[in-house]
Design a protein around this nucleic acid. Sequence first.
DNA 1: GCCCTCGGTGTAAACGATTACATTCGCGGC
DNA 2: GCCGCGAATGTAATCGTTTACACCGAGGGC
Lengths: 344, 344
Amino acid sequence: MVTIKDVAREANVSVATVSRVLNGSGPASADTQHRIREVAGRLRYVPHGGARSHITSRTETLGVLLPDLYGEFFSEVIRGMDDTAQRNGFHLIISRSHATKHGIETAMRAMRGRVDGVVAMSPDLDAESLLNVPSTLPVVLLCSVSRGNELDSLTIDNCRGARAMVKHLIGLGHKRIAIIKGAPRNYDAAERLRGYRLALRDAGLVPERSLELEGGFTEAGGYAAVLKILEMDSRPTAVFAANDSMAIGALSALRESGVQIPEEMAVAGFDDIPLARYMDPQLSSVRVPICDLGARAVEMLLHGVTHKNGHPRKRERVQTELVIRQSCGAQLVGRPPPPPPLQP
Amino acid sequence: MVTIKDVAREANVSVATVSRVLNGSGPASADTQHRIREVAGRLRYVPHGGARSHITSRTETLGVLLPDLYGEFFSEVIRGMDDTAQRNGFHLIISRSHATKHGIETAMRAMRGRVDGVVAMSPDLDAESLLNVPSTLPVVLLCSVSRGNELDSLTIDNCRGARAMVKHLIGLGHKRIAIIKGAPRNYDAAERLRGYRLALRDAGLVPERSLELEGGFTEAGGYAAVLKILEMDSRPTAVFAANDSMAIGALSALRESGVQIPEEMAVAGFDDIPLARYMDPQLSSVRVPICDLGARAVEMLLHGVTHKNGHPRKRERVQTELVIRQSCGAQLVGRPPPPPPLQP
DNA sequence: GCCCTCGGTGTAAACGATTACATTCGCGGC
DNA sequence: GCCGCGAATGTAATCGTTTACACCGAGGGC
């Protein structure tokens, strides 16, 4: 492996000069510059990133702690993070932390000296365990909040989104609306549930525990939940799934049971993953700008990194958008043709 | 930030002793051990990963170069990689390389000194540009192969999988079968197309260019391709999409055009993403063990890392499995109830 | 009593870069 | 002719570890 010393020897200069020329961080005669560049190219010299970060104490790398992943959401959020990171000359170290407290701690330890900051997405926990980090390491909490205000956080406005969707369903005349809940102890899941209940109360309806079913954020969970709903004595007329994966499972179960959607049962989801519009009927959902979410998390983190974590802490929240398609029945009258899909 | 020196001073020993005790790499009296551990805990000492890798020249980190991602496939493959990496005490640096040659080179340069090896997934290119890497850095090509045998590679048996699916369609009586192709210049796409053509020839049918449509691996591409198919003079009776995303787009377009599936048009996909079974009708597909794919790539890479890249190069291939559901019409007679979904 | 071994410990050299500081040289101002 | 300055370059410290080597003392075999 060729090092800066090899280049220096071959070019008859000191390592300092090589470093200065290659980084443009100091004066050098035209002749020297040319010679060094030529040698570096010929020897295929590539600076050793690790050594460089060691001395500069900037790794130009960000850590990303993720929980166990739910399908497409995950890849989208990474895409957003990586774009922003790369645009700023940073890399991403990704680690799926087995959601236990111990797992997170281990991951944080391992990050020491490898990253300049961490985006931690661990909605299943109170993120309390993260507080153990040395206060010099910038951390952004994604999809969860810290108890105090010690850490930056970025969340989805789950509550408002859910509330809007359920309000919409109520506006269509539904009085008994079931919810398929997300994973227990999950921040997003809890907030979406809260929005659902608020919307009911807004309309003078009383939330019933029996209409709140577990779904675990998976297709299978949504499928199973619908089977239970269909057995109920006074069957609801609409079901709101706390994410699209569960909504898709729900659609599947309804179809197989011969229930007409949306005539006999309206369905709505959350996230608006790309697939939603390709469902039959097309799935109404609450759009989350997933890619943006990742991008903004990294932006916040980079802000913390450049300010050496000495900035005032922020809590940001990304807004959602109601996307009404066929599955909730709003367009029943004369059901218009679906919008043409975007070209790739 | 507390370093090993701080611990040494506080415990009245040399840094060497601290290092030995904490790593269990040398003898130490029970008293010393106890004292050092106590101090390290009290001071919340965490070893600096960067410094450690610098001296040991093992970063315990693997680089992952990815192309632009196609939905769920990507998150699954990462999951497999990360599991295996973590089990072996390694981290993952992930980088989406803008599929240009220059992008890959830049990414590879940046990896220097940060990783012990690289999994490069760049099916859109001949991966030729990767050959520039110093021969000491282990590299595993995922979903593509190098011209010579200079690099390890792991691919999907696309050709066999596609051939089997098309053979199945032919067995159901179809004579005109269209294919929606993947991204141009993509290895997987090319191999799936090859399998399609081979299956046709096996059955004495002649592949027609007009039945081979571009789809670009996206839902929108599949949707658009079907619209073209429906305009054809002698319409095919089956369509094989080179991945599930396109198949889902195709299903959507067919439904909206009022074409009965599978009676008027049989549909099959490739990958068998989790959603496939929740489609209406359930989507027949060629199952790819995506998670395994990631896991095995990392295993291969770790083998290269531990053998300092001095091992004989390997070309491995993961097998696929035919998953026949409703969309291709095989189960038309008495259409049995779908299998119950897996519980979460 | 001598030598060898071995447990326990410290000293200092690495690893590959960056960078503060010193040095040299030429040149212009006075 | 002296001083000072700035450009060009070299010297060496530094980052936080690991580890080869040296050292010292105790104990055992002879």
